[in-house]
């Protein structure tokens, strides 16, 4: 099977399970005749793939240039502290996964945070934490 299809397959698996389970990596490595380390490396190269189950709420906070100028750094710190996890981690209760990301496309309205498909703009720390509280 062509390697280009690998990404497509990874997307499908990610959408089905919310992450890429180990046994799926083993299957892909068989089908694509690649060492499983290579499949793993591909997954790790792209930030949209996960090798661990993610939380119910995917929290993405932008830390690209424009948002950074609007103190997204403070926002990132506040969210991290509130959830008690670092970038890329999932809370123990499997509710939240945090991702610090590049540009979410609302650069004029920063700082910006996304929870699942919902965009929140012009945030400050208190509002962000209130949004997360409302998810509970």
């Amino acid at each position: 099977m062509a390697r280009a299809n690998l990404l497509e397959r990874l997307h499908t698996i990610q959408d089905t399970y919310g992450y890429i389970p180990e046994n799926e990596i083993n299957k892909l490595s068989d089908q694509f005749d690649l060492p499983r380390s290579k499949v793993y490396g591909t997954i790790k190269f792209y930030s949209m793939f996960y090798t661990e189950p993610t939380g119910k709420y995917m929290v993405r906070v932008c830390d690209s240039l424009s948002c950074h100028l609007n103190d997204s750094e403070g926002l990132v710190t506040a969210v991290k502290n509130y959830l008690g996890i670092a970038d890329g981690e999932t809370t123990e209760d499997k509710k939240f996964t945090l991702e610090v990301v590049e540009c979410l496309g609302h650069c004029g309205e920063g700082p910006v945070m996304m929870v699942n498909d919902q965009i929140y703009t012009y945030l400050n720390e208190n509002r962000a934490i209130q949004i997360l509280k409302d998810c509970m």
């Binding site: 180990e22 990596i25 690649l34 060492p35 499983r36 380390s37 290579k38 793993y40 490396g41 790790k44 190269f45 090798t51």
Partner: peptide, 25 residues
Amino acid sequence: CEEVQGVGIFTMANRGPATVLTTFG
């Protein structure tokens, strides 16, 4: 490991300055 030994234990993970050599999982 991959070409001479046909095993393929190592891979690069992540990008940019965070790039790191690692093994499966």
